[in-house]
Design a protein around this nucleic acid. Sequence first.
RNA 1: GGGCUCGUAGUGAAGCUGGCCUAUCACGCCUCCCUGUCACGGAGGAGAUCGCCGGUUCGAAUCCGGUCGGGCCCGCCA
Length: 469
Amino acid sequence: MTRTYISEAPEQVGQTIELKGWVASRRDHGKLIFIDLRDRTGVLQVVFLGKNAELFQQASILRDEFVVSIKGLVKARGEKQINKDVPTGSVELVAESLEILNTAETPVFEIEKAPTTSEELRMKHRYLDMRSSRMQNNIQKRHQIIKLIRDYLDEQKFLEIETPFLTKGTPEGAREFIVPARLSPGKFFVLPQSPQQFKQLLMVGGMERYFQIARCFRDEDTRGDRQAEFTQLDLEMSFVDQEEVMVLNEKLLISIVEKIYPYKRIQQIPFPRISHAEAMEKYGSDRPDIREDKDDPNLLAFCWVVDFPMFEKTDKKEHHGATGEWTFTHNPFSAPIPDHIQWLRNKENIDQITASQYDIVLNGYEIGGGSIRSHRPDDLMKVLEIIGHSSENIQRDFGHILTALRFGAPPHGGIAWGLDRLVMILQNEPSIRDVMAFPKTGDNRDLLMDAPNDISKKQLDDLDISISH
RNA sequence: GGGCUCGUAGUGAAGCUGGCCUAUCACGCCUCCCUGUCACGGAGGAGAUCGCCGGUUCGAAUCCGGUCGGGCCCGCCA
């Protein structure tokens, strides 16, 4: 007999089926026992009647979170017994046999009360937290969103391509996680803070349209909307301009909302476009919250922020590994808008050069950012020179990409979404931790696995590493 | 690197201007009763030295210092 999912049970009235799942609650009436059985798809009431003494005796030892397999008859409930608060409330399973697949200790917190339980305990016992309808819903919706993204981009002729985790560090940007390279004693890999350079190399490699659900790593302090380890939807396209990238992403975002969140309302389509200057002036932020009603949980106010200045003055002695008076506002790979490319090439009007940079903002959160890249090596060189990189550093840190651009790099551009953040907002959750299966704490520790942890002397010796204190 | 906040039975909270705390409540847990409940109901019961260490005091859950753990924010996050 094949197992039936609980959500399918209401269509099986009159049939004998087998359900498997967890005991969510029991109501023992002496000669009648009700069990709420939970699986991934929902909850269903199971009835044990006293007339079958042996079965009834078995059922009486059931406790919350026991794992069971129950065969029984799906019965339509009588008029007075219908529970309209539960999706399966029009039926119940009259148990005919019970197998206890596993017992369970009393959970450290009540599963459906997980939302009011301290995050510390939820993280320590994430497998219990995950059984709650809240987390089930978050993780299932996250899956649906990613599935839709994959299908959509596949249809648009994108290839999903994996890029390395073990790679090379760059001096600019976030602090990086490093990984000792045992076979090259004293040398280190670095975990990518984004696949930026690889995706550009894929464009040089003629892949034309790439995407990846990419794990990224940044060894910075965390926030409610930032984790050291997080997921981007990273994509890059060849032979496109800014408009094409923005339109494609906008359509994809609209599609996600319409198909997965049909009850939510997008405030304005097409998404309004706000210049960086206007955003700062009107909203005092480069990620403006333009919602008409900030109390409406089903209102989604997307907007694009565009026309970022390419460079800004810096008073820092060192920035992104360079020492000039200018620094870039987003990343060195962005190109100016076509009208300003000549200024860059002549290194003139530096403060007026506008980057072909676009950020996508939702309800006051930056959920993505991208740009058209410099596909000619000389243009990238100019950017690196303006911010004050020494030619030695340029060769060391950017030599590989400069070389690649010399071999027929096509015009290209792309974007990266903060996927966790997007799911967080769509699910109305206060933290990205709530939409990640196994999040870490504010100081980047894993309470469930107890990581990071010490490693053995032998492991350190193999790596030729000594700990100084 | 800095600032703020929280830490009391298994869970969530109350108490915290020091003594009335022999620490309160709800949920959960255990035993018994109950044939229609659905977060069932009823009766009874167990379970906390108030995160940890130290100090002040006749007396500390309560005040002070430190420490550990969770969260929020600034810096940081190209």
